Amino acid sequence: MTIPVSKIETLLGVLTIKLNEDNFVKWNYQLESVLQRYDLYSHFDGTSVCPSKYVITESEGVTTELTEDYRHWIQIDKSLLSLLIATLSDEAIEYVIGCKSARDAWLSLTDRYASVSRARVNQLKTELHTIHKGGDSVEKFLLRLKHIRDQLSAAGFKLSDDDIIIAALNGLPQEYDMIKTVLIARETPIALKEFRAQLLSVEKNIES
């Protein structure tokens, strides 16, 4: 059962991320998670179809009276559209002006922000292959790699854990040469979680 219309506006309190040029993946993840929790995401992905608008009777056929299902569906959809708009930056709002439904607004935003241009994809791939840890902590370095991975994923380019590990190893400074040698010589793959743990351990030893 879907959440009552009166309750939808209360969801804004948990939707803390406003969509802008650089955070579509995070914004989408939060929005989708919250709406799926309350069985409302179907208005965005198109699986919830608008019911018949007018009442049909045997004596009159199609009347001008609106069906209760239609009234309720429209109330829910307009409330979700308002909720969606409230999570947008001033720039992002420009792409939903004129949209009549939550689905239309969602498609417009996805087309604008999830469809990364070829030039942007090539830039992200270059960043992946040339990234260096520098003065960042291991945690921050891996988060930078994850950010690149997420953006490529949103554009339809999937990266494996091995791709991320190789990129990370190439970007580590000389202090990590020993662990780099050990990991490269491994005959079995290493999980990303274990890889992170080993780098954090080396970082701790270096600091001490």
Score class of each variant (00 low, 15 high):
Val202Phe: 03
Val96Pro: 09
Gly61Lys: 09
Asp69Glu: 15
Lys78Ile: 08
Gly61Gln: 10
Thr64Asp: 11
Val14Trp: 03
Thr67Arg: 07
Ala92Gln: 07
Arg118Gln: 09
Lys78Tyr: 02
Leu128Pro: 07
Ala114Leu: 04
Asn205Phe: 14
Phe44Ser: 14
Ile56Phe: 11
His132Val: 12
Thr16Leu: 14
Phe141Cys: 08
Asp162Ala: 13
Ile165Gly: 03
Lys18Glu: 13
Thr126Ser: 07
His147Asn: 09
Gly98Met: 05
Gln75Glu: 12
Thr67Pro: 08
Lys125Gln: 02
Glu175Gln: 04
Lys53Pro: 02
Thr2Leu: 04
Ile131Phe: 11
Val202Lys: 05
Val116Met: 08
Asp90Arg: 14
Leu66Ser: 03
Glu65Asp: 02
Leu152Glu: 05
Ala191Val: 01
Lys100Ser: 05
Tyr176His: 09
Lys140Ser: 12
Ile164His: 03
Val62His: 08
His132Phe: 10
Glu127Ser: 04
Tyr54Cys: 10
Glu194Thr: 13
Gln198Cys: 13
Pro189Asn: 03
Ile131Glu: 06
Tyr113Phe: 15
Leu19Lys: 08
Ala114Ile: 05
Asp69Gly: 04
Leu80Ser: 09
Arg196Glu: 09
Val182Ile: 15
Tyr38Gly: 01
Pro173Asn: 00
Met1Leu: 00
Leu19Cys: 06
Gly13Arg: 11
Ser89Thr: 05
Gln36Gly: 12
Thr130Trp: 02
Ala114His: 01
Val49Leu: 15
Met178His: 15
Ala105Lys: 00
Leu152Ser: 06
Val121Arg: 04
Lys140Asn: 13
Glu207Val: 13
Gln123Pro: 02
Pro189Leu: 04
Pro51Ala: 12
Ala102Cys: 13
Leu200Gly: 05
Ser101His: 04
Ile3Gly: 01
Ala191Asp: 03
Val116Asn: 02
Glu127Ile: 01
Thr67Asn: 09
